[in-house]
Amino acid sequence: MIMKKINTFFYTLLQGILNIFRNKWFSLASVATISACLFLLGVFFAVVANAQHIVKTIQEEICLTVFFTEGTSTERMAEVQGIIDARPEVLRTQFHGADEEWEWFRENHLHADADDFWENPLEGMDNISVYMKDISQQPALVTFIQSIPDVDHLNYSPSLANTFSGVNGLISYVFVAIIVILLVVSIFLISNTVTIGISVRKEEINIMKYIGAKDFFVRAPFVLEGVLIGLVGAAIPLVIIYNGYNSLLKYVVDRFAMLSSLLDFLSVEEIFRFLTPVSLLVGVGIGFFGSMSTVKKHLDV
């Protein structure tokens, strides 16, 4: 009994692989469709993920500055810094003492003229720079900081925050919308190709059924064929995008050093952490479910 099952398993496996070569034009068309769709998806993902990453990097550099009421002790300022640091939306904080700031300014900008100043003009201007993880949460943080005793006032730009969170939100929406559209188009195109390919072989399925083949026996080679086609179709664009992205990144860094120092691009590994499982899942998933449902339509003989 087990031997029979093993025989059947290897037979269906072999038939699934042979089917790909028996129907080479259909196989090629399916692989090409899957590859083209997933290539578009991959390229678009790489572009949008980078755009999002760049916007995020820039907004992390935007800070609000907290000033204290006159006479606040250094210990209290450190305490307030701790309270702000503990907030989940805060990425990091940095304390700027008036004396250290003045010292730095004298050394770096005034040079010989430094001796003309006897007093620290920045006296009483100790402050904390607060950098946020997500700038859209700035209003809530501002309200919180303003409620802390000894905080005098804050310097920040509500319009900058609004612009950035708007851009970020827009990119996210557009990204999700286009990914969904591309996925739906891919699924439609790929399953259509698989459907046509299998419908052509309706007669073969009928013959198998007349001979007394069980549904599994008929379906297994087709499903395996669909999965293999999906796998190959997904692997091709991944390889192309991997090499293409790496080359492009290298080219940008070499040719446009200025641009690459300003903008922080995602590494190919970061892109592929998402792209590999999604592409493989879409390719294999469509191959599996597409062939499964198409064969099912013809099994009722």
């Binding site: 031997m3 029979k4 099952k5 025989n7 059947t8 037979y11 198998m208 001979i211 007394g212 083949a213 069980k214 026996f217």
Partner: peptide
């Protein structure tokens, strides 16, 4: 036809 009926 024999494979369908799982003949060795």
């Amino acid at each position: 036809a024999q494979r369908v009926v799982e003949t060795p």
